[in-house]
Simulated scan of single mutants.
Amino acid sequence: MKLALFDLDNTLLSGDSDFEWAQFLISRGVLDREVHEAENLKFYEQYKDGTLDIHAFLDFQLAPLARHTRTELDAWHVQFMAERILPMICDKARQLVQHHADEGALIAIVTATNSFITAPICREFGIPHLIATIPAELGGQFTGKVEGIPSFKEGKIVRVESWLKSLGHDWHSFSSSYFYSDSHNDLPLLHKVSHPVAVDPDDTLRATALAAGWPVISLRS
Score class of each variant (00 low, 15 high):
residue 62 L to Q: 04
residue 162 S to Q: 15
residue 152 F to E: 04
residue 123 R to E: 15
residue 118 T to P: 02
residue 121 I to Q: 02
residue 50 G to A: 04
residue 103 E to F: 08
residue 40 N to Y: 02
residue 192 K to R: 15
residue 175 S to D: 15
residue 161 E to P: 12
residue 136 A to N: 07
residue 206 R to T: 07
residue 212 A to E: 14
residue 77 H to A: 11
residue 87 P to Q: 08
residue 89 I to S: 11
residue 139 G to D: 11
residue 96 L to A: 11
residue 189 L to R: 08
residue 53 D to K: 11
residue 74 D to H: 10
residue 125 F to W: 02
residue 58 L to K: 01
residue 174 F to E: 06
residue 192 K to L: 15
residue 124 E to W: 03
residue 105 A to I: 05
residue 211 A to F: 07
residue 46 Q to V: 09
residue 20 E to F: 06
residue 214 W to V: 01
residue 159 R to E: 08
residue 35 V to T: 13
residue 204 T to V: 13
residue 176 S to I: 06
residue 148 G to S: 07
residue 130 L to C: 06
residue 33 R to W: 05
residue 54 I to L: 03
residue 54 I to S: 00
residue 115 S to T: 04
residue 103 E to P: 10
residue 109 I to D: 03
residue 178 Y to K: 03
residue 61 Q to I: 07
residue 121 I to K: 01
residue 191 H to R: 14
residue 134 I to P: 03
residue 191 H to G: 10
residue 149 I to D: 10
residue 114 N to V: 02
residue 100 H to K: 04
residue 192 K to F: 12
residue 191 H to W: 09
residue 142 F to H: 00
residue 84 R to D: 05
residue 211 A to H: 13
residue 143 T to L: 03
residue 151 S to C: 14
residue 21 W to G: 01
residue 169 H to Y: 13
residue 126 G to F: 06
residue 158 V to E: 11
residue 117 I to L: 07
residue 40 N to L: 04
residue 100 H to R: 06
residue 201 P to G: 05
residue 123 R to K: 15
residue 188 P to N: 12
residue 135 P to A: 12
residue 100 H to A: 11
residue 129 H to P: 07
residue 197 V to Q: 06
residue 22 A to V: 12
residue 135 P to R: 06
residue 150 P to W: 01
residue 94 R to L: 15
residue 10 N to I: 00
residue 114 N to H: 02
residue 6 F to H: 01
residue 56 A to K: 08
residue 138 L to G: 09
residue 157 I to S: 05
residue 18 D to R: 06
residue 165 K to L: 11
residue 162 S to H: 13
residue 34 E to W: 07
residue 169 H to A: 09
residue 156 K to T: 05
residue 163 W to V: 08
residue 26 I to C: 09
residue 20 E to T: 09
residue 92 K to I: 10
residue 78 V to A: 15
residue 26 I to E: 01
residue 151 S to R: 04
residue 177 S to P: 04
residue 172 H to V: 03
residue 123 R to P: 08
residue 38 A to H: 08
residue 105 A to E: 01
residue 13 L to M: 05
residue 48 K to I: 09
residue 134 I to K: 12
residue 161 E to V: 12
residue 82 A to R: 13
residue 19 F to A: 14
residue 211 A to Y: 09
residue 91 D to T: 14
residue 6 F to I: 01
residue 62 L to P: 00
residue 106 L to K: 03
residue 48 K to E: 15
residue 88 M to D: 07
residue 207 A to N: 13
residue 196 P to L: 04
residue 80 F to Q: 00
residue 70 R to F: 11
residue 106 L to D: 11
residue 107 I to F: 00
residue 136 A to F: 05
residue 50 G to V: 00
residue 2 K to H: 13
residue 85 I to W: 05
residue 27 S to G: 08
residue 9 D to M: 03
residue 206 R to M: 09
residue 109 I to M: 03
residue 133 T to A: 04
residue 220 R to H: 10
residue 163 W to A: 10
residue 173 S to G: 11
residue 140 G to T: 00
residue 126 G to E: 04
residue 85 I to L: 11
residue 43 F to V: 04
residue 177 S to V: 03
residue 144 G to T: 00
residue 183 S to G: 09
residue 129 H to R: 13
